[in-house]
Design a protein around this nucleic acid. Structure first.
Lengths: 292, 292
DNA sequence: GCAATTATCTGACTAAAGTCAGATAATGCT
DNA sequence: AGCATTATCTGACTTTAGTCAGATAATTGC
């Protein structure tokens, strides 16, 4: 009865009925679940109809009708896409925003209620993070973003916070050579963010220089997403980006207080080299030749 | 973004889409979800129609039609209840058993696949147990069972195993005064099992004696269900049973190697008394006067 | 024995979700 | 320019789920 498979299945059943309760709470606002899900997808920033359709797994006919329904209720407006008038973008009206906020309140108080009902709060949260990361691991999307975008800035803030926790002497961004955002955008470089659902859980920057190589900077993976091979995926993707930019030589610096990083570099073809900059924080330097 | 509520909501989303995938896998056998759920409920041993209806939250008309459908497929048979011909009991035919086994295989391989895909196996399982217990805490059912039933015997085995882990000198049931099953059944006593879903997660026995008191024996709560106040619930329920049996004085023995048990007794009106038996294991003895 | 109650079933609905074959209009490609 | 492709929409379905008012038959309580 306590074999691993039974335990997983008990979890599945528990969660299935909890999800059922969650779904029916959405019905509290007198709208069928399908329409509520579309409204929420729009509220969470998805604007292109095709994207929403894919995300929710809906047929195009059904999607279209759900949108008409929301339009009739005065909750959303659709417009032609600026660059491609076949595609449509949808946005919330003022009424729609209010309605979306009501759904958000419902979800938030549901979550709050769950936490309040249970005593082992931190243990539960850690368990939830772990399971959420495990469940969504093959839906982690790596996307090139502007390093000044919200998601990128969130990752960088978490990265700096972690460095200051882990470096004995703390970490002050202003003392480090802060790469200019321009150097981490095409065509000079690139910045890649890993998103799990709507949560940024990792990043890495590729910084172009004028010295015949590019640098890897700001490799970070969220604590709840470690052990999923995400660091490797981010690095692979960066090398790909470098190749596409015609870059043949990569360098990076790191610190021996981050042993898992050094370990990753050593096992993926990086070669330790002498110090190549005067940044005060790093004490380890690597180089990798790419291009087959 | 990492505030507790967002973390709970991210978990909810992850789990919602995983459950969606689980549900659609059930559709792989070409049967609508409703019918599949009824078939599975029957396969898992529920035989009375009313019970299944309550468990799945179905309308009686709908339930009836789903059953007719399964009958037409040759998967189930219904008969009148032996003691009350208004009620109907339903059972699987041979074909039905095969079909149910196919669903079981699907569920098992789904669970197996999840475990195989992830590296932190033990951490994941512990996280799942914790969350499942938290989610189902208000659906934990306490029922009086025969101490020789499967669920009761499972609890007792777990209880003995735990004692032998926690007692320095180990634990051998045969050395302990093993209460006769008859003493823990009405009208002499009672045995109560806590069920979370289909998993027994706790038990307690009320053992009648001929000395003017009854004894509480075998109080056990599964590790994954601790911290939910289940021990207290089990004790309250036992006192209720004792009252209904006209018992006014309760005694119990325990061991100081189980501090959480002693703690529970001390805070719920039990009074420490001198040794009242010659069982080799206990070193702490309590008594409680009940009846208002 | 008989009225009230209980468990299940049937018929006649509605609502929601999903499917699919075109229709329409914009865009890409040569 | 003209044809294939793409994104969305519409109409005409089907299936599933769910509701509700009786009908039927067994049982309980007096």
């Amino acid at each position: 009865m306590l074999d691993p498979i039974s335990r997983v299945r008990r979890f599945n059943r528990a969660v299935t009925s909890a999800v059922g309760a969650l779904d029916t709470s959405f019905l509290g606002r007198g709208r069928p679940l399908g329409a509520a899900r579309v409204l929420n997808a729009i509220g969470h920033g998805r604007s292109e109809i095709g994207e929403i359709r894919d995300y929710l797994g809906l047929d195009s006919g059904l999607m279209s009708r759900l949108l008409r329904g929301l339009e009739d209720e005065g909750l959303v407006e659709t417009h032609a896409h600026e660059e491609d008038a076949r595609r449509r973008v949808v946005s919330l009206t003022r009424t729609g925003k209010r309605e979306f906020a009501a759904y958000e309140d419902l979800s938030n108080s549901q979550a709050e209620g769950f936490l309040a009902r249970n005593s082992q709060r931190e243990a539960l949260l850690a368990a939830m993070d772990l399971i959420a990361s495990a469940l969504t691991r093959d839906r982690i999307a790596l996307t090139e973003l502007d390093p000044r975008s919200d998601a990128a800035r969130y990752c960088l803030a978490e990265y700096y916070a972690e460095l200051s926790r882990r470096f004995k002497q703390g970490f002050d961004v202003s003392l480090s050579r802060d790469p200019d955002a321009k150097d981490m955008r095409r065509p000079r470089g690139s910045f890649i963010v890993a998103m799990s659902d709507t949560l940024p859980i990792g990043c890495v920057g590729l910084k172009g220089t004028d010295h015949g190589y590019a640098e890897i900077k700001r490799l970070w993976v969220a604590p709840s997403a470690r052990g999923l091979g995400l660091g490797k995926r981010l690095m692979d993707r960066t090398e790909e980006a470098a190749r596409s930019l015609g870059i043949a030589l990569l360098r990076l610096d790191t610190n021996s207080a981050l042993p898992e990083a050094g370990q990753l570099y050593r096992t993926t073809g990086w070669r330790e080299i002498p110090r190549f900059n005067d940044d005060p924080y790093p004490d380890l330097f690597f180089e990798k030749q790419i291009r087959s």
